[in-house]
């Protein structure tokens, strides 16, 4: 019996080695760059590598991390969710309003509303066959409008007095704040979900080839719906936690947050075209953005506009590298 060896195909052994190298760069590129930036920053600024500063970076990044976890699932299916910034703001405002009925309500109300928004957007994408970009762009505008409507045009900022809720936002375990803990727990749950469950494999498959997934009998529409629900949940939870952290539901927060989340996900190595993604990469992407901001703040003489330029430059480089690498793999 003759066996077909992989080398019988277009992939020769040198190609295989190159392919592996490309795979490593794609999967671990963001963590490697993060490590380099951290090391350089640690030597350049004495105030950088201190417990206070590092936990501060973690806390500042935790809200974006939670949003980016949901966003990773959406992007892996080949979709996009532009509404997360508005849902984040709505989550915060609702949490602050609902905190008068206790901290449980302050968490449950935003989550329910976030899920409903996800169901509506997901249904339009999955069964309506509409482009995710347009559906969630409409979501971005509409939800921001709702936020302004329930806060008198943004002039009202509901405050949080509930001590338990404030504790969730501001307290912590040892020197790590609860939002960081929650973010990391969600990350682990997300990793297991994406790589070890049938649902997660379905998410990857739908992003890889919707047509083939349909022919293989996967529930394509249900998969699509579920990722938008997940993204609605994570965005509103992050908003509620952010409100707990600041003791108030500020209506104007989260503007442009969707772009930061997308950047973090893509920098982390998730393909914008779907079918391949890594939540570890997303964590690295989120931290990379956080560290860059922190370093620029350390320099002091630089303004926040420089931060945008650096982040944008990073994103561009990552996308270029990704494109080049995936072309290499296809050869």
């Amino acid at each position: 019996m003759t066996a077909i060896e992989p080398s019988a195909g277009p992939a020769s052994s040198s190609q295989l080695a190159r392919e592996r190298a490309v795979g490593v760069v794609q999967s671990f590129g963001a963590p490697i760059v993060l490590a380099i930036v951290v090391i350089v920053a640690a030597f350049s600024f004495p105030t950088f590598f201190t417990v206070t500063n590092l936990t501060n970076i973690l806390l500042q990044s935790s809200f974006l991390l939670i949003v980016a976890i949901g966003m990773t699932f959406v992007i892996v299916t080949g979709g996009i969710d532009l509404s997360v910034g508005s849902v984040f703001a709505l989550g915060g405002v609702l949490a602050a309003y609902a905190s008068q009925w206790g901290w449980v309500a302050a968490l449950v109300v935003p989550l329910v509303v976030g899920a409903v928004i996800g169901v509506i957007q997901g249904a339009l994408v999955a069964w309506g066959g509409m482009a995710p970009f347009i559906v969630t762009l409409a979501g971005l505008l509409a939800v921001r409008g709702i936020v302004l409507a329930i806060t008198n045009g943004g002039s009202t900022t509901p405050l949080i007095t509930d001590p338990v809720l404030k504790g969730i936002g501001q307290g912590g375990f040892a020197s790590i704040e609860w939002p960081v803990v929650i973010g990391l727990v969600l990350l682990v749950v997300g990793i297991v979900l994406l790589t070890r469950s049938r649902t997660g494999q379905g998410v990857i498959a739908v992003g890889g080839s919707e047509n083939a997934s349909t022919l293989m009998g996967l529930p394509v529409a249900r998969v699509k719906l579920s990722v938008y629900v997940l993204s609605g949940l994570t965005a509103s939870l992050a908003g509620a936690l952010n409100a707990a952290y600041t003791s108030s539901g500020v209506p104007v927060v989260g503007v442009g947050l969707e772009l930061s989340a997308i950047s973090a996900v893509v920098i982390g190595g998730t393909l914008l075209t779907g079918g391949k993604g890594s939540l570890v990469g997303t964590l690295a992407g989120v931290l990379l953005l956080g560290v860059i901001q922190n370093v620029i703040n350390q320099v002091g003489s630089l303004t926040s506009s420089v931060q945008s330029i650096v982040s944008g430059g990073f994103l561009a480089v990552v996308v270029i590298i990704q494109t080049v690498l995936s072309r290499q793999q296809r050869l």
Partner: peptide, 27 residues
């Protein structure tokens, strides 16, 4: 008509992966 980015084994068992502990996929 398969998913090019996924592994050979994933492609064969997509939607009916063998599961073990806690219903997680037994790779």
């Amino acid at each position: 008509n398969l998913i090019p980015l996924m592994s050979v084994a994933q492609n064969i068992f997509l939607g009916r992966e063998p599961r073990g502990f806690l219903g997680l996929i037994d790779h």
